[in-house]
Design a protein around this nucleic acid. Structure first.
Length: 234
DNA sequence: GCGACAG
DNA sequence: ATCTTGTCGC
């Protein structure tokens, strides 16, 4: 476990969707784009899954060494689900468990890959951006589908990319991580630029559609068996 | 008003 | 996200 100042009030759910959307607008102003993070020695990947028909929220966090991309830690947290899924308000439902899992890692990650959007959100506060503002950690959003915005078609080859636009503003990048495979939506969460977000996703490619940090966290969050261990987990 | 809608 | 078996393709 490592030190982390958390702005719990930022993602507290009060049962009022309109109030939550208003809070998102205010929090979005605290998001910092532009690269602002130190050397990347280790990165984390976080994801959330559900059990018991949605009654239990299951959050997973993995820690990877940046140079070797070796798994050096993992954490799993289970909590009762307190809020239903509402498009646009995903972070209020998943952040409590997600942050709990993240905090159980033995080391503070220099960068966090989050499953879901960063600023590619109606009010520019997807779960990756919200996590960044709530903890001040550098975060990247990697989603499998577009929530809002439009984009031109992109080439079928790996590495092809086009900007994702919304209301005349660039909110992310549609990136083909594998040849002829559905593209990923990459967007800055906090403390980094569009270009760096894409570069980091490509840097952690492991031959699958999802970047390694996200893929491993995804695997752990789902009940698909343990991870090919290679470090500390106890 | 009508459709769309991360996980 | 989750419920679910086999199956087509690289």
């Amino acid at each position: 476990m490592f030190q982390l100042d958390i702005d719990e009030a930022s993602f507290a759910w009060h049962g009022d969707a309109a109030e939550a959307r208003q809070r998102q607008k205010a929090l979005a102003e605290r998001v910092r784009l532009g690269d602002d993070f130190g050397p990347v020695n280790c990165v984390a990947g976080v994801d959330v899954g559900f059990e018991e028909g949605g009654a239990v929220t299951r959050a997973a966090a993995v820690l990877l060494k940046a140079d070797t991309r070796q798994l050096i830690g993992q954490a799993l947290v289970r909590q009762p689900t307190v809020m239903p899924y509402v498009p646009g308000l995903l972070s209020f439902r998943e952040l409590p468990a997600l942050i709990a899992a993240l905090q159980q890692l033995d080391q503070r990650p220099d960068l966090v890959f989050v499953d879901g959007h960063g600023i590619a959100h109606p009010r520019r506060l997807g779960i990756a951006a919200h996590l960044g503002v709530a903890t001040d950690l550098a975060t990247i959003g990697v989603a499998k589908k577009v929530l809002c915005g439009r984009h031109e078609a992109l080439a079928e080859m790996r590495g092809a990319q086009v900007p994702l636009l919304h209301r005349g503003e660039r909110i992310g990048t549609v990136l083909r991580s594998k040849h002829r495979v559905r593209p990923l939506i990459v967007s800055p969460g906090h403390r980094l630029s569009h270009d760096t977000a894409v570069a980091q996703v490509l840097a952690f490619d492991g031959g699958y559609r999802l970047p390694e940090p996200t893929r491993l966290a995804d695997r752990l969050a789902s009940r698909r068996g343990p991870l090919p261990d290679s470090g500390s987990s106890r």
